[in-house]
């Protein structure tokens, strides 16, 4: 089986007092995420994207429908540990997910919980820190690191559990541009070299260009789903959903309106320049 995560008509509402209305945050989500893919989930605040993410490692369980992680039903309590060792989660605030006051101790936290033997933990800590490029900081105090470095430590802490999938729940939202780049390049490498499935929740459109597949959430439902070139070029539809297409696409779309013969699927500066040059040359 090569389905990493499968949601079947997933609905969810947060618990409320008796008699109060229970607004659904997720309203019937059907998704299949393949092993080894890099998926970006976009959406404005309140679109349900974070709630969806929290269902992927049983941090939340459905109030309706089903979530299967590598075949395990997340609603069954005895599956929780199996689900969580398969799907690691990195959160938004880097300060609030680091447990220990030495980097290597923090990375070891997950494997320690799983009861991994001591020598094996040491090997995993070393390899995980290498994988995120933080091996020189093994003995540092986490609170003295930059935001991007802290998030990389958090990622190392997750991959030390040797998961099949990493979910980044708005993990780049609090970082500056260079920190964001650090994190994105790290997960992209993990995806490419180790075949780890990556699910990135964000509202930064520029990050969608890294993905194989882009899913746009809106009011608890999947509003768009497809490869980046297909999704990011739908300027008007994105605007309706509270998002903005990348500037390169906006530029080409504006030029198209002025009668230029360009197509919109240019997500990089180079592609965009190619399009313009071609049109100018013609």
């Amino acid at each position: 089986m090569n389905d990493m995560i499968q949601t079947k008509s997933l609905t969810f509402h947060y618990p409320v007092e008796e008699g109060e209305p229970a607004p659904d945050v997720l309203r019937g989500v059907d998704l299949t995420i393949e092993q080894g893919s890099f998926v970006v989930i976009l959406g404005h605040n309140g679109s349900g994207k974070s709630t969806l993410a929290k269902h992927m490692n049983a941090a939340l369980v459905p109030t309706g429908g089903q979530v299967l992680v590598d075949g395990y039903d997340t609603a069954e309590e005895e599956n929780t540990l199996e689900v969580r060792r398969r799907v690691g989660m990195v959160f938004q605030n880097p300060d609030n997910q680091i447990v220990a006051n030495v980097v290597e101790e923090d990375v070891a936290f997950g494997p320690e919980n799983l009861g991994v033997p001591t020598e094996e933990i040491a090997r995993r800590v070393r390899q995980s820190l290498q994988a995120v490029g933080m091996e020189d900081f093994a003995l540092h105090a986490p609170h003295l690191l930059s935001g991007g470095q802290k998030q990389r430590v958090a990622i190392a802490g997750v991959i030390a559990m040797e998961p099949m999938c990493i979910v980044l729940d708005e993990s780049t939202a609090m970082l500056d541009p260079s920190g964001r780049r650090e994190v994105l390049e790290t997960v992209q490498r993990l995806n490419r070299e180790k075949g780890i499935t990556v699910i990135l929740i964000t509202h930064h459109m520029s990050e969608a260009a890294y993905a194989h597949r882009v899913i746009v959430m809106d009011s608890g439902r999947v509003a768009m789903d497809g490869p980046p070139a297909e999704i990011l070029t739908q300027v008007d539809r994105l605007r309706q959903l509270g998002l903005t297409a990348p500037p390169t696409v906006l530029l080409l779309s504006a030029l198209q309106k002025d009668g230029w013969d360009v197509s919109l699927d240019a997500l990089t500066v180079e592609d965009c320049a190619d399009q313009i040059c071609r049109a100018l040359g013609a």
Binding site: H44, M174, M205, G242
Partner: peptide, 8 residues
């Protein structure tokens, strides 16, 4: 605007 979505 740190951490806000594009519309916000």
């Amino acid at each position: 605007s740190a951490g806000l979505d594009p519309a916000g």
